[in-house]
Amino acid sequence: MYKQVLAMYNNKSIVLGFSLLALFILVALVPTMFTRQSPYTPNFDNILAPANGQHIFGTDELGRDLFARIIFGTRYAFIVVLSVCIVTIPLGFTIGAIAGYKQNFIGNFLSRMIDVFLALPKLIIAMALVASVGVGIKNAIFAIILTAWAPYARLTRANVLQLKQQDFILVLKLQGVSSSRILFRFIAPLCLSPIFLQAFLDMSGYILMVAGLGFLGLGAQPPLPEWGSMLANAKDYILTHWWLITYPGGAILLLSLSFNLIGEGMQSVLTNKGF
């Protein structure tokens, strides 16, 4: 384990990814350190202004400072990612663990469920869900959770199936340790690294997905400064006021890229094949 962490320090993409991510986290935690402007106050005398001294990125269609909106929008990106991860990882792990460990009806049923949800197109189902139930960032998060837990379940199931044949598990069973304790205290820690890996790779997907939903008007509603919905509003002014599109899109790109960099780096470190 220690060797792996050390290897991570040396891996270029992880370092780059983490620095980028750290920057974003800092921005999300203390946005006021980066900008004095408010992302919410409109200023009708200064709408759609290009970049100038007072507004580094210019202003949007209501005169709000674009840079400030991007800075404050970082929070929403992290809120989404964290909410989704906090729910899907334990959920996916539990379902996958039960599916792999138990061979009874429940285990089989859950196993089938995992296969089903793996085979469904995430974005389309999420769109259908939000469009039916109602728009808003909470519903978008819920929709993403519903479609995103399956990969973790599959990973866990595969790992559990493999591990439960091992000797030390048989010893524990003989000792009379309950299944849930075996699962959570002994098997779980061994599954962590592939789950982490998957999580980092998926996090960039969550950001893109919530941005996509926001773009269609299904995610965060105005006046929240969420990047996807900012792009949706900016779509109308793209020809003449290109900065409204470029900067929020660039922010999405950079944050997503940071997660991908970390994920890729971790992949080469953890799988140790050097690919």
């Binding site: 793209i238 999405i252 997503s256 890229l257 997660f259």
Partner: peptide
Amino acid sequence: LRMLCLLGNSVSIFWLSLMAMLLFYA
């Protein structure tokens, strides 16, 4: 190539389409 792939996974496709249309058409 690896950079290209990373970017491909990180970019939002609607942003890319908008940029592409802006650049190549407009």
